[in-house]
């Protein structure tokens, strides 16, 4: 598939999309924090990737290469939105978008990739616990499972997720060959922890 992708095969791009669209979407939403911009960023990411496919090195993992394109594409859109406009473009004038933290995009990508690799029941229990904010007892009730089973599954799921995120502290592999737009400011990930989300 990667060989076909590199050769510019549109069907191979479809397979790449099926594999990575969710992660690219997470990055696009994280960076742009707006649905319509994320849609634009996602489309542009895959089209840029397809246009640059001949520059992709098949020996390297496609994910980080795609992530690089995704986050700089999203940043380009943000910069475009921040640019002063003329001619009564009210929507853009009203848009207030802060340049995002690049490492948050990396973390979003890694978490998406890790969750994708979990078993369904592991992912479900993490979702109920963190996103739905349910206690173990509530999860047991929801899933009609013994409390002990929920606790043990939860523990295993956390362990597995942590293993999959073992390298999250490492900087993403360089994808500079895909980056044609320059870099934005790079701040520490600590900012993300206190930022919270406003996306919906």
């Amino acid at each position: 598939m990667l060989v076909r992708f590199r050769a510019g095969d549109a069907d191979a791009l479809g397979e790449v999309y099926d594999r990575y669209s969710r992660s690219v979407w997470a990055v696009a939403m994280t960076v742009t924090r707006a649905d319509h911009l994320a849609q634009e960023a996602l489309q542009e990411t895959f089209i840029r990737a397809w246009n640059s496919a001949s520059a992709y090195d098949p020996e390297r993992d496609l994910g980080p290469w795609l992530l690089t394109i995704a986050r700089y594409t999203a940043l380009d859109l943000i910069r475009r939105e921040l640019r002063p406009t003329r001619g009564g473009h009210e929507a853009e004038q009203d848009a207030v978008v802060e340049a995002p933290d690049l490492d948050v995009a990396w973390l979003s990508w890694k978490v998406q990739e890790a969750l994708r690799q979990l078993a369904d029941h592991e992912r479900e229990i993490i979702r109920l616990s963190f996103f739905d904010d349910l206690t173990h007892a509530q999860i047991a009730q929801r899933l009609e499972l013994p409390l002990g089973t929920v606790k043990s599954r939860s523990h295993r799921a956390h362990r597995r997720l942590a293993e999959l995120l073992a390298h999250v502290r490492d900087p993403p592999q360089s994808g500079d060959d895909a980056n044609q737009t320059g870099t934005g400011g790079r701040t520490t990930i600590g900012k993300a922890g206190s930022e919270g989300r406003s996306d919906g």
Binding site: R22, L107, S108, V111, F130, V168, G190, G193, G196, D199
Partner: peptide
């Protein structure tokens, strides 16, 4: 690494993480 731990939890609690993906 307190910041990273907090960031992972924030990510797991984010709607973006669990949204249904792109249209």
């Amino acid at each position: 690494d307190p910041a990273l731990l907090a960031a992972v939890v924030t990510e797991l609690r984010a709607e973006t993480t669990w949204a249904s993906g792109p249209p």
